[in-house]
């Protein structure tokens, strides 16, 4: 190929360089970016934290303040999208957002109120989680649902046992 034909080819192709930070970038369909957390839907069940491979989502119970803290740290996320897959209420949506570079750490925190056990007073789940499960179970066991797992076990066992010659 002579030099002239190279010039002809270059003219045919034209400029290929993208002007990116000065223009909008196209992102292909199905590209996974920043997960978006809908705090109005989240029930604090910690399913997302269970599947999160790098523990970018952490769920911690703050007993002093009586809240469950769902904390997402963008710097550790590998954007696998498993959290959105397992979320039972579709509170997490995978967006195409990729402009995530930061100088100051970025964390998204949702604080949900904990509900206390009606027997021992120990916080065991969030109000929203309890209401979600009550909605699934329907009528039947509402008095057991307000007990923490330990008290629930004791109460179930006590209901089977008939005391003979004393108390249990």
């Amino acid at each position: 190929m002579s030099r002239l034909s190279w010039i002809k080819k270059a003219l045919e192709v034209g400029v290929v360089t993208r002007k990116y930070p000065f223009e909008h970038a196209e992102v292909p369909e199905g590209s996974r970016g920043l997960p978006e957390f809908d705090s109005s839907k989240c029930i604090g069940c910690s399913a997302c934290a269970n599947v999160c491979t790098p523990d970018a989502i952490r769920v911690v119970d703050d007993l002093n303040e009586g809240v469950r803290r769902v904390e997402y740290f963008v710097g550790r996320c590998i954007f696998c999208g498993r959290c959105a897959e397992v979320c039972p209420v579709s509170a997490i949506r995978i967006t195409k957002e990729f402009e995530l570079a930061y100088k100051d750490e970025v964390r998204f925190i949702i604080e949900l109120k904990l509900v206390k056990c009606s027997n021992c007073g120990k916080p065991f789940t969030t109000t929203r989680h309890l209401n979600h499960v009550l909605g699934k179970v329907g009528e039947g066991l509402p008095e057991l649902m307000t007990l923490c797992p330990d008290c629930r076990r004791k109460s179930t066992v006590n209901s089977f046992i008939t005391p003979v010659g004393g108390t249990v």
Binding site: P21, L34, S39, S40, C42, V67, V74, E99, L100, A101, Y102, K103, D104, E105, V106, R107, F108, I109, I110, E111, L112, K113, T127, R128
Partner: peptide
């Protein structure tokens, strides 16, 4: 962002719900 052409898009947010 390092060169100062764009600004950081996201910052830490904290939402407390019932």
């Amino acid at each position: 962002l390092a060169l100062g052409i764009v600004k950081q898009k996201y910052s830490t947010t904290k939402v407390r719900v019932e």
